[in-house]
Computed example of a mutant assay.
Amino acid sequence: MALNYNEFKEYVRQRELNNYRSYLEVINNINEFYDEKDFKFFYPRNVFNDQETELLIFFKDGYVSIRPDIDQKWVYEHHYGKVISKSLVASRYTADIHELTITFENGKKVVLDSRDDSNPDWLSDYSKVIRELFKLI
C-alpha cells in the first residue's frame, strides 16, 4: 500500500523523502489545524517523482489539499462538500494503472492517477490505494 499518514510521518522523520524538512513543516501545521482522528484517507501525490507535490486528506464532508506555491510556501485549501459521484477506470490487473475521479457537491473534482501520481516502483501500491479509496467513499 502507498503511504498512509502515519507511514508518511515516519518516512519524513527518518529523512527518507526528498524535501523532508518541508514535509516536517506541513506535519506540524496539520497537527495544529486538524485532529487526525477525523482523517478518512490520506493520499500523497507526487512524493516519489519530480512533479509538484500535493497532499490530500479526505474527511467525512470534504477534503484538504496541501501543496507548495511558487514562493516555497505551503497552501492549505479545505473544500467542504459531500461526494456526489465517483468514477474508476481500472486496469484488468489490480497492480496496474488506475484512475479515480471524485466529484463533490460544491463542483470540485479530484482526479487520482496511479501512473501520474507516483513512479514505476510505486505504481502497484498507488493502484491498490486508489481501489481502497473507491471502496471507502
Rank of each mutant, 00 (worst) to 15 (best):
H79V: 12
E99Y: 04
S87Y: 15
Y23F: 14
Q72V: 09
Y23L: 02
I57T: 02
T94V: 15
F39N: 07
D38T: 13
S65L: 04
N31A: 09
F58Q: 07
N119K: 01
G107W: 09
E36Q: 10
P44E: 00
D113E: 13
L100M: 08
K60G: 05
F59T: 07
I102R: 06
G62V: 04
P68S: 08
E54M: 09
F58M: 06
W74Q: 02
G107F: 10
I84S: 07
L24C: 03
N31R: 11
Y126F: 15
V111L: 12
K109N: 12
D35M: 08
K108F: 14
E16Y: 11
Y126V: 01
W74G: 00
V12Q: 02
R115A: 09
E105F: 04
F48P: 01
V47N: 03
K109V: 09
R21M: 14
I97D: 08
A90S: 15
D69K: 02
S87L: 14
E32F: 14
D121C: 03
K73D: 10
I27E: 01
P44D: 00
R92Q: 13
R21Y: 13
T101I: 11
F33T: 01
I102F: 07
L56R: 02
R15D: 11
R15V: 07
E99R: 15
E52Y: 09
I30M: 05
R13C: 04
F41Y: 14
E52Q: 14
I57V: 10
V26W: 03
V89K: 15
K37Q: 12
R13Y: 13
G107I: 10
R67L: 06
Y76L: 04
V110D: 02
E25C: 02
D125M: 04
I97P: 00
F48M: 05
I97L: 10
F42G: 00
Y23T: 01
K37M: 10
N119W: 02
G62F: 04
K60V: 09
Y23D: 02
Q14Y: 13
H79A: 05
W74P: 00
K60W: 05
R13D: 11
E77H: 09
D71R: 14
V75P: 01
K40E: 14
D61P: 04
N119I: 02
K109T: 12
E36I: 05
R92A: 13
I27G: 00
V12M: 05
F39R: 10
S91R: 10
D117A: 05
R15I: 06
S87F: 15
E99N: 11
N29S: 07
N46E: 05
G62T: 04
V64G: 03
D117W: 03
V110T: 06
